[in-house]
Computed example of a mutant assay.
Amino acid sequence: MKLEFPLLGLLAARSMSGYDIKRWCEVEGKFVGLDRHASQIYRELNRMQVDGWVQWQTDPRDGAPDAKIYTVTEAGLQRLRHWVRSSYVPPRRFQDPEFAFRLRVGMMLGEPGMSDLVRQELAARREQVRLNRDRPYDTETDDDRAEIDAEALDFIAREIRHQGERQIDGWIAWLERLLATIDTRAAAAKPKPDGRPEVSS
């Protein structure tokens, strides 16, 4: 996932300084694979400003250097919407940051098709389980390798595999709950005949 998309997503939610963005990446971003170095963030912000996707204004600071406060432009929002609507190919690794950010931005912008995105991710992970859950273990070692503890290798390989199975099962269960909630929210927001949204009681 290109760095421009999470940056545009953050700035679509609120105006931020480069320092604010860097702090977000250090605190929140590390949980979704976006703990980027400050130089990467500022370089990307400069490029996005040249491309017309963000703009900035000076925020004077007493006793400190002035700050640049970045805001997403209409062109930046269109770039973000185009990304959210573009084809999503689930990566081999589940819990990839792109899925979470695409979903986060799409929900924030009220984009249709977010339930389809979750269904696509869910189908990919169910297929992963189907293909891999019962495959045989391969922890064979050469007979002449006396320094290798084959029993310990077999034990830890099974433990690691079982932990991975628990993690993907948890991911699938979360996707199922999320899909049900998104579908419920969408149904509650369907407009009435007069064009106004339904108000759920």
Rank of each mutant, 00 (worst) to 15 (best):
G33R: 00
T73K: 13
S39H: 13
E121H: 00
R47T: 14
P91D: 07
T141D: 00
E140N: 14
R14Y: 07
E74L: 08
F5I: 13
M48V: 08
E26K: 09
D66R: 06
M48F: 09
G18C: 03
I172H: 00
R145C: 01
A124N: 06
L45M: 07
S87N: 11
I69E: 12
G164K: 06
D169Q: 03
L103Y: 14
L175I: 05
R196L: 09
E159G: 05
R126V: 06
M16H: 10
E44S: 14
L131G: 05
A124R: 03
R196H: 07
I69T: 12
S39Y: 11
A64E: 14
L77T: 10
I156A: 06
Q163K: 10
G63K: 07
L153R: 04
D144L: 01
R125I: 07
E127P: 08
G195Q: 09
Y137C: 00
G110M: 00
R135G: 11
P60R: 07
W171G: 00
D183H: 03
W56P: 00
A75E: 15
E26P: 02
P136S: 05
V199L: 13
E159T: 08
T73S: 14
E74A: 15
R119L: 05
M107R: 11
R125G: 05
R185S: 04
T181S: 02
T184H: 04
A189V: 02
Y19V: 08
R85P: 01
I21E: 10
S15F: 02
S17I: 08
D194P: 02
D183I: 01
R93L: 14
A146I: 02
W56A: 08
F31Q: 03
A188N: 08
P91N: 07
F101P: 10
T184A: 06
E176D: 03
F101S: 08
R36A: 10
K192H: 07
F99S: 05
R102L: 13
E140V: 12
R47A: 15
R133W: 14
I69Y: 13
L117S: 09
D116H: 09
R43F: 13
M114S: 05
Q49L: 06
L34P: 07
D51R: 11
F155T: 01
V32R: 02
C25Y: 13
E159A: 11
R85V: 02
T139V: 15
E159P: 01
E151D: 03
G106A: 08
N132Y: 15
D51P: 03
G195W: 09
Q120H: 09
D62F: 14
A189M: 13
S200L: 10
P191M: 05
R47N: 13
D143H: 02
